[in-house]
Design a binder for these strands. Structure first.
Lengths: 342, 342
DNA sequence: ATTAGCACTCGAAGAAGGAGAGTGCTAAAC
DNA sequence: GTTTAGCACTCTCCTTCTTCGAGTGCTAAT
């Protein structure tokens, strides 16, 4: 659909714009890129690219700026040809990934931090709560008065623990019996299934329950009802250095949006349905508040089941090649960790 | 040291400045505050206050702005007389505090969120790792291949769990034996003490250890070495609405500083040594990057031992009365939760 | 088909000039 | 002696105007 020359010029505009913001003029292209064409010719081509919707003029007689579709075209070409990468970045990445491996307890925190440090954009990592998580074992322990400590050991790296309150005190023996029963019955099932089963049982036996069993049922219901996912966000300070973020109100809205972790979570849940790195550019983003930003995300898996995701949020004027590389490598690395430690 | 009239005027300047930034002039004081004095007299007094270091002129022929010492004087007077509070704020606070009580699992996250929502500044909450935490019980469970899940149940609300890697696989029975041994021997001791004892034992028995015991010792050392504290920060988007934060570079430095959780942690550790709400105003702050901001913090305790802290960070032009009220009430509330659930 | 030349456009940056708020000082009033 | 009115002065902020320069689109020449 685009001839080779047009493609080259589009890429040139985008690369210049990424390296420094502000409209790109025809002359600066001839200076930085050795295409054997004069500024006038380039102007004509740029005008064509504008008609096709890949470029845009902020105002008459200004240079051109990429549109979201322009970036989209660029990114698609990029992923097709697997860009060559900065060796320095690669070694830095590998060094930091090893750090993640050694501290499995806070790998999510470390991953988001690492992504933001290397990309200089916002780094995000989440553990997804797909309800497909499988229960390996459950432990119930008396905690304080009228409280029970629950430890859910799942097949993911993250152990969930929770304190729940109960109406009447339950002895350690009863807790052990209950835990034994739950393990025998539910180990190997997904949390979602267990929850459903328990709800059904409560409904059925409502009348004949004696005190302890009803208490036990309430406990189970509590345990398996809402299990939160973890969300880690780093590098908010990084994006403040970018000239793209000179408008405080825009940053505020962005921060406000991502401070609400549910939003991030549901977005990444959708994304992790497909595998490999996903890129959402500006208006492609489903959320209004994020339509001025770009989003590079990839799920990480245990086996073939996605159990979390990592992402980078930055301006649409993003170094996509680098961001995709970072996200892709990191997601694969984490997936590897889960595979080998099986 | 200050006569009554000067005090009133200082308070007037600060209150006007807090309600809207920009130098405060003598005439606006006479308009808003019914002190029976003319602008000229007030000018004279303000000039005196400037000599004493409580006020400052941004430039000749501009109004006055409070200095850090000015705020300090104001805050000291404030805490002495226990300011009367907004009834609406109070009821809102109580409503949200109840939410904290019902969800003990994420009370820190909720507390920081609540503080930022009510104050419109940055809300922070941390659980301190003072090494004085007492071990109630330890559970060891096989996790993945060559990994063990450890659950430390302490006398604080927060259960710490951790996955540690071991060199050789350890059977479930051995883990149970080890856990039993540790519980029998160390339950009731502080984590710090336990760590020291274990290090000493490793040093002593280095030569005679057989494989399993050495492995066990290594595990223990790993468990009790570094246990992280939790830090929750909310409301970064809130402060971006403030006119004080028009300088992006300043915000960036602030965000950069508080994104490094160690900094926050050590600051709050120091603060929680003394009880009751603490206020650090601008330059009183030990950290250079925070010298342009103010810090209101209070520890929460279990019994009399501080086990965490909550705080508000805002501009020096902060509504101190409200911030102190919020922090104080919240800290007391959390302390209460720990006392009653004993 | 490409390129040089040229008139034109538009924003950024700087200069100039009020307007306004507020001060400090002096002299009068209480 | 303290307080106040009056007044000249200062400094910022905002608006307007101008200039400058980068870059375009068009036309004619290559």
């Amino acid at each position: 659909m685009l001839d080779d020359r047009s493609k080259k010029i589009l890429h040139a505009v985008i690369q210049l714009y990424i390296s420094s913001p502000g409209p790109v003029g025809s002359r600066s292209i001839t200076k930085k890129f050795p295409i054997g064409l004069s500024p006038a010719t380039i102007r004509n081509i740029m005008s064509d690219l504008e008609d096709m919707g890949f470029l845009r003029q902020p105002h008459t007689s200004a240079g051109r700026v990429p549109t979201d579709s322009g970036y989209r075209f660029y990114v698609d070409a990029l992923t097709a040809e697997k860009s060559d990468n900065d060796a320095e970045l690669a070694s830095e990445l590998i060094r930091k990934l090893e750090l993640i491996r050694t501290d499995i307890n806070s790998f999510l925190d470390n991953a988001s931090r690492m992504l933001s440090e290397l990309s200089h954009y916002i780094g995000i990592s989440v553990s997804l709560n797909t309800h497909q998580t499988m229960l390996s074992r459950i432990e119930l322990l008396p905690y304080r008065k009228n409280q029970i400590a629950v430890m859910l050991i799942t097949d993911e790296a993250v152990i969930k623990n929770k304190i729940i309150s109960v109406e009447q005190e339950v002895s350690r023996e009863d807790l052990n019996r209950l835990a034994g029963y739950l393990n025998e019955r539910y180990a190997g099932h997904t949390l979602e299934d267990i929850r459903k089963t328990i709800v059904a049982e409560i409904a059925n036996d409502r009348i004949l329950c004696d005190g302890l069993i009803r208490e036990a049922m309430a406990i189970c219901n509590n345990i398996f009802s809402a299990s939160e996912s973890d969300v880690f966000i780093s590098g908010l300070s990084e994006v403040l250095t970018l000239p793209d973020f000179c408008d405080i109100e825009r940053i505020r809205r962005l921060f406000r949006t991502i401070e609400d972790k549910h939003v991030i979570l549901s977005l990444l849940e959708k994304i992790s349905a497909t595998d490999g790195p996903q890129v959402l550019i500006g208006s492609e983003n489903p959320l209004d508040e994020l339509k001025q930003f770009s989003f590079v995300a990839a799920p990480y898996c245990e086996g073939s089941r996605p159990i979390g995701a990592i992402a980078i949020i930055g301006p649409t004027r993003m170094n996509y090649g680098q961001a995709i590389y970072l996200v892709d490598m990191t997601a694969k690395f984490i997936t590897d960790i889960f595979s080998y430690s099986r």
